[in-house]
């Protein structure tokens, strides 16, 4: 359920109606960003932000730090795995 795709805001089209243009892998479209605009993030400051797009609305901002944390965890696991493999291989 709920197809959501990451895209980057590249331009604010209508500040009052909170319409911005996003880019998804070279495809651009106007979307509504009302759900990610608040006092801390005024409309114009959103350019460059990565957002999760669902049915023409930015439904959330993607947190780069949290993404990096998740990635780091997976990276650690991968490295541990590779070490294990290296250890279990007979010395040549």
């Amino acid at each position: 359920m709920c197809l959501g795709i990451p895209g980057q805001i590249i331009e604010i089209i209508d500040e009052e109606k909170k319409i911005a243009k996003v880019d998804v892998s070279g495809v651009r479209r106007s979307i509504n960003i009302a759900c990610i605009v608040d006092e801390e993030h005024p409309c114009l400051s959103c350019v460059g932000d990565w957002v999760l797009i669902h049915v023409g609305f930015a439904m959330g901002r993607i947190d780069a730090e949290e993404a990096a944390k998740t990635m780091a965890l997976l990276q650690e696991l991968e490295e541990a795995q590779k070490e294990m493999e290296a250890m279990s291989r007979p010395p040549s």
Binding site: L3, I5, V24, S25, G26, V27, R29, I53
Partner: peptide, 13 residues
């Protein structure tokens, strides 16, 4: 697959 074609496919499922 071209990136834009992929983009359209991801957006529209």
């Amino acid at each position: 697959i071209r990136p834009e074609v992929r983009g359209i496919c991801e957006i529209l499922g």
